[in-house]
Write a protein that binds this DNA or RNA. Structure first.
Lengths: 215, 215
DNA sequence: GTCTATAGAGTGATAGAC
DNA sequence: GTCTATCACTCTATAGAC
């Protein structure tokens, strides 16, 4: 007679359930936090979106802030990696071209992540204090340094302030996630299609590269 | 401007006390809504910020939404007026130079207004549906038409999509209001001074005008 | 592990004394 | 016009039955 060991082992059948539920909750939370901000989001609505009783959320995540951090940390990991990859030795034109495409595609593929990050910054970033204090300025300076070297090599117009160029790279690309409603309304569409994103990439790349004097 | 969202304050005799209190409430509400979004803001905190009993807010404004519209309508009035002033007959270089300066100065002088507008759009604009439906697309097309005429006159590079150029003008300038926390953190400052804003104007103007092929 | 039931604080809004 | 006191409701979070 076969022995049922499932009830004796640490291998719980619910381990799979846990993983599935946590993922459902995180997805629901991402939508809620993006739509309402941290303070405006409600655990009740997140539970409803995740198709789970409200108390289960508190079983899987300690509290509202814990759930928020779980969502936010995934975003932060993605955030600065692309800019960190820029190197002074690389070709300026192809580096920036690649960077602009990556960022726009990120706006297209992860609009909720971008909006949660934007919401957090707009509201004064009370949950990002560690992110913006611990060596953020130093990291940023290492990024502007790349552009300064390009300037010394005559590859980038001297009258450009590198820090503000970086802000331009950020703002122009993230706009397609954060302001998607306004952008699509202006274009008379419900949402943007791939052709729109390609047009955005083409126009931004043209203006920024040419405007920086990069050949 | 596509639409004027009229104030919801009603028409009551404007005594001196009333005027002063309403202004205090509006200022407090602007801060709260900018920091927490519509859903996250609380009437209690607004009242506290305005140094008034909570019930007074309801005396002066019908409800939370009415107060929000009162704040928002002031913003909307300011919002598109500068872009509406662009004309095909005008000189492209000086028009865009002026526009960029105006928008950056707006970000500097009215950061809260910019953030409330951004918050509203990020959260799906449930209170701006009339703004984005009634003739918004038509108004936007009349704006892109200016750039198209400049292109036909050879004043603007042909490979540029006018609509995306407008998005770039918006995003690059509003960034200094909405993401002020990140910008100042990157620069290692508590807040930006006038020199920073001038540098932003210089860099943006250089890149965008040159990048568009405008002489 | 799951979910009902509920505590306790906070929400928008209002009635009514002053 | 002003403000206290309070209502009905929703919020986060938890205790405890299953």
């Amino acid at each position: 007679m076969p022995l049922d060991i499932s009830s004796h082992t640490g291998e719980k059948p619910a381990g799979r359930i846990r993983q599935k539920n946590e993922q459902q909750i995180l997805a629901a939370a991402e939508q809620e936090f993006a739509a309402c901000g941290f303070k405006g989001a409600s655990m009740r609505d997140i539970a409803e979106r995740a198709n789970l009783p409200k108390a289960n959320i508190h079983y899987y995540f300690k509290n509202k802030l814990g759930l928020y951090f779980a969502v936010l940390s995934d975003i932060i990991d993605l955030w600065d990696s692309t800019l960190s990859n820029l190197r002074a030795e690389d070709d300026a034109a192809s580096s920036l071209t690649k960077y602009l495409r990556k960022k726009i595609e990120f706006s297209r593929d992860h609009p909720l992540a971008s909006r949660i990050f934007a919401s957090e910054i707009i509201s004064g970033g009370p949950n990002l204090d560690r992110y913006f204090t611990e060596g953020y300025e130093e990291w940023f300076r290492s990024r502007t340094a790349v552009f300064e070297q390009w300037q010394q090599q005559g590859k980038l117009d001297a009258s450009i302030a590198p820090s503000h160029l970086i802000f331009l790279l950020w703002s122009s690309t993230q706009h397609y996630a954060d302001f998607a409603l306004q952008v699509s309304s202006a274009l008379g569409k419900k949402s943007l299609d791939n052709q729109d994103y390609e047009q955005a990439i083409t126009t931004l790349t043209h203006i920024i590269l040419k405007g920086c004097g990069i050949k």
